[in-house]
């Protein structure tokens, strides 16, 4: 083929454009550490990356939810633990009160302690979070869990005003966990303790008096029932914490394998890129040299 003089320039320019273009692209990829600068660099890989990123986002959210839930459940547990301690202390007092050797003065001295314990459990049941929401009222978070009405008959002065509905938290794909706990049933214990306190307050209260004994007995068995109920709630927390830990570990594993996949698909192979860079650099240098040599050639120099 006949070669025109301008063609050397054209070929050189093309070679420079090509090599410099690839070099820019490679440097840019190396700077970003990614093999895909724009989706069109590899549309399929880009879709896979995007889906992995979407999954990562939701998995990380599940892990966050689990962490927050664990804290919330632990808080609930410690409040309930406090109640159990108070109720146990009350139980000790009741057992002591049932001892027939107690004098009326002995019994009177127990009234203050029992009252303090009753009020402590009552206030604990109406615990509010930092935003003033009642945490033991089921989903009726604006309503105190326990109400006290001094005008009501003795056995009905304490009442549960919340509901028993649950707050569900999504902790996995299609997996939910209950986040709240209510104190329904606790009003029975409060009322029975209240009955026992009234009985002990009565002037000349006698542990051997049938009515007093009945009130104390009822309070004691009520305490046992109440303790059982609260302890059961605490026991489920332990189970839930374990389930959460397992789920969280699963999510973390998924996140890890997703991360590996993300790197596999999206990361630049530096060794490969480096080799390519050297190759194109060499080609560019050779082009410079070739142009330098060829452009020196002219028949006019020989004339």
């Amino acid at each position: 083929m006949r070669i025109a003089s301008m063609q050397y320039q054209a070929t050189m320019l093309r070679s420079l454009n090509l090599n410099q273009g690839v070099l820019t692209d490679l440097t840019s990829k190396m700077a970003n550490g990614t093999r895909l600068l724009v989706p069109s660099d590899d549309p399929i890989a880009n879709v896979r990356l995007s889906r992995l990123n979407r999954e990562q986002a939701i998995v990380n959210q599940y892990v966050d939810n689990i962490d927050a839930l664990k804290i919330r459940l632990a808080k609930n547990e410690s409040y309930l633990d406090g109640m159990v301690n108070d109720m146990n202390a009350g139980r000790d007092l009741l057992v002591w009160a049932l001892d027939g050797g107690n004098t009326p003065d002995d019994l009177k001295s127990m009234v203050n302690s029992l009252t303090a314990l009753r009020d402590s459990v009552f206030y604990n049941a109406n615990t509010r979070d930092q935003e003033g929401k009642y945490i033991f009222s089921g989903t009726e978070t604006n309503t105190p869990a326990m109400t006290y009405d001094p005008a009501a008959p003795l056995s009905l002065q304490y009442a549960y005003a919340g509901n028993t509905q649950q707050q569900q938290v999504v902790v996995g794909n299609g997996v939910t966990q209950v986040a709240n706990v209510d104190v329904s049933g606790l009003q029975d214990w409060l009322n029975q303790i209240n009955g026992a306190i009234e009985a002990l307050k009565a002037p000349g209260a006698d542990p051997n008096d049938a009515t007093t004994r009945a009130a104390l007995q009822a309070a004691l068995s009520g305490t046992d029932t109440g303790l059982d109920a609260v302890s059961q709630k605490i026991a489920t927390f332990g189970g839930v914490q374990n389930v959460m830990a397992t789920l969280s570990a699963n999510h973390t594993n998924v996140a890890l394998s997703n991360n590996i996949a993300l790197h596999d698909i999206g990361d630049l192979d530096y060794a490969d890129a480096g080799t390519q860079l050297t190759g194109y650099k060499l080609a560019l240098e050779a082009t410079y040299q070739a142009y330098g040599q060829i452009s020196k050639l002219s028949l006019f120099d020989a004339l």
Binding site: Q61, D129, E131
Partner: peptide, 21 residues
């Protein structure tokens, strides 16, 4: 995608404490 992820993540996070301001 990232905007939608963040919006639904916020909703999801709210599940832990739906009354939290």
């Amino acid at each position: 995608s990232s905007g939608i992820d963040k919006f639904f993540a916020a909703l999801n996070g709210l599940g832990v404490d739906p009354t939290s301001s």
